[in-house]
Design a protein around this nucleic acid. Structure first.
Lengths: 178, 178
DNA sequence: ATAGAAACAGTACGACCCGTACTATACGTC
DNA sequence: GACGTATAGTACGGGTCGTACTGTTTCTAT
């Protein structure tokens, strides 16, 4: 039962926040919830929903209980230490600067033709927009998902702005190209 | 001289693209160039400018020559294999979806007061904007930095849009708050 | 000329993170 | 009750990260 000392990263707090919302959850449920909330602002591979709760439990921030038969699911929940760590972190007004990683820009920097990427990119943002709007509608009725609604709203605003940006960066096709 | 097989990641290509621009460079020079070009779209810790070229050289994508005395600087340059890998990658119109990582949104999701973060965030984007505009002015005269200018221009557009977004997300202060 | 401070440049390192590939369980249905 | 599909979970090792640290050069004052 003794906790080893682990470093809490932003991803750790993301998990703690999710579990704070969910009360208790299995990794699979955590992954579902991520997809409908923080995925746009803190994407992680699905294995994180399995690895990180185990790590957090080893540090004493989560409790675990394991199902006997079948899939032998583990259910996680915040401990007092977890709740305390989470609220201390959230209360601190310092936040790391946002980071954007965009392989498309890298390719353009490497000499690729920007025009080859604009249209697929627009499509991608439009799809994301539709997806988030769907989640928003789905969850906005439910008071328990209020916080998800906030980040989904921010996500919608973000993708709209990115679409505007793409429009502005698109050179007017005045026939001079080539 | 035999090359071991290594996996090329987006970061690898970022380095290759930089060296393609610079002709040859030491890790320190690479880091400088990163700060004035791709930093906004592909941030990496400064140690990457040392680690990754060594890795790339071990894979045969870069050549190295080491200074004798003093700092014993290593100078890297593209090999034919490096040049080829870079252009094959750039020519492929597939690109991974952009990823945004924003700890602020995570804190808001965790229950923090959004208003505590809006103003610092505006300030941050404004500073970035000024910084990029400075780099742009500095480099735009120089034909050799044409590609940097492209990504800097995109960066400027990005930060402007983010500032607009923050304005839209800011609740009108109509005295109902609190 | 030389000590000390400041700026510049480079390295060590181990915990953490990631993508890929894979395995296992449950459910539907014929 | 065998098969296909969707759901759920694990293994693994290379890649990545931040922190702390060391070493070199230049600057400044004396």
């Amino acid at each position: 039962m003794k906790s080893k000392s682990i470093r809490l990263t932003s991803t750790s707090y993301a998990l703690l926040a999710l579990l704070d919302q969910l009360g208790e959850a299995t990794p699979y449920e955590i992954k579902q919830a991520m997809d409908k909330s923080i995925e746009n602002f803190w994407p992680v591979p699905h294995t994180t929903a399995y690895d990180e709760p185990a790590r957090l439990a080893s540090g004493g921030y989560l409790s675990v209980s394991q199902e006997e038969g079948g899939r032998r699911r583990k259910t996680y929940a915040l401990t007092a230490a977890g709740r305390e760590a989470l609220s201390a972190w959230a209360a601190d007004p310092e936040a790391a600067a946002p980071q954007l990683r965009d392989e498309t820009i890298l390719k353009i920097f490497a000499g690729a033709d920007p025009r080859a990427f604009l249209e697929p990119r627009r499509t991608w943002h439009r799809e994301k927009l539709a997806e988030l709007e769907g989640y928003l509608e789905e969850t906005s009725k439910d008071e328990a998902w209020r916080r998800s609604a906030m980040v989904l709203t921010a996500g919608v605003a973000y993708h709209r702005k990115m679409l505007e940006m793409l429009d502005e960066l698109t050179p007017a096709d005045d026939g001079k190209g080539g």
